[in-house]
Nucleic acid binder design. Structure first.
Lengths: 122, 122
DNA sequence: TCTATACTTAACTAAATAGTTAAATAACCG
DNA sequence: CGGTTATTTAACTATTTAGTTAAGTATAGA
């Protein structure tokens, strides 16, 4: 998944990771703080792995403080993804224009049904 | 990957799929049109699969027109993701305030180095 | 009807993801 | 030093994802 943008979106495609970012948006937190809300659902190493995904995507920066690893959000890493989304904004904000446009071009299309497909066992 | 938001981000986490959306942002296109730029890198069924991921995420709507399947972008499906990102906007637009804040709290932290970790072969 | 075009599905495989448990490192603290 | 807390890593497994090829359906048109 080579490219940066894909890495960012992939990192965001998980509710646990998004929740961790939400927590970090309220301030720095170390690993066990971040893990606490999820320890009923998953182990600590699982949380470490999620954190690593966020780190590799640049979304989280980890530092060292004795045996703790304070983490903070790196908002800059979201900019690329936000910029990408931005170019599509017109496609969900066109509500009025779209309705207008739609009313001009009410061109219904046909429909059909399908049966079975594919191939037999090798 | 149950939730809608995760599904959206996961669908966006692939350059081929993003390129297909970019193409559709310029207008309706059928499957072979969409596939054309990728047929040197992958097969047509591979493209169909990518398209299905986009469809399941609601980002693309497919219709029927004789043997063709005209696809169009459904921008609305990006709104959820865009709204989610929006709440983090301050974290990449804070440049000035952040610098100001930073200059007030120059509190350097310690660092250290690590060796090997983990466990032996079972 | 026969054939070409458009697209999909099935069956399979390889690689990536997400989780696990056990063990290891690291730093503090009595 | 020895134990406790914080965190990571390794090794393993199961599931998902991304691709393949072969074969299927659907429609158009000579």
């Amino acid at each position: 998944m080579q490219d940066h943008l894909s890495q960012t979106f992939a990192a965001l495609a998980d509710p646990t990771r998004r929740a961790m970012l939400a927590r970090l948006s309220k301030g720095e937190a170390n690993v066990s703080d971040l893990a606490k809300p999820f320890l009923k659902e998953m182990s600590l190493p699982a949380v470490t792995k999620h954190l690593k995904v966020l780190e590799k995507a640049g979304l989280v920066k980890k530092s060292r403080e004795a045996q703790y690893r304070p983490c903070r959000l790196n908002g800059d890493a979201l900019k690329g993804a936000a910029d990408w989304m931005e170019q599509y904004r017109v496609f969900w904000e066109e509500s009025f224009d779209r309705l207008e446009e739609y009313l001009k071009t009410v061109t219904p299309k046909k429909t059909a049904k399908g049966k079975s497909h594919g191939r037999k066992k090798k």
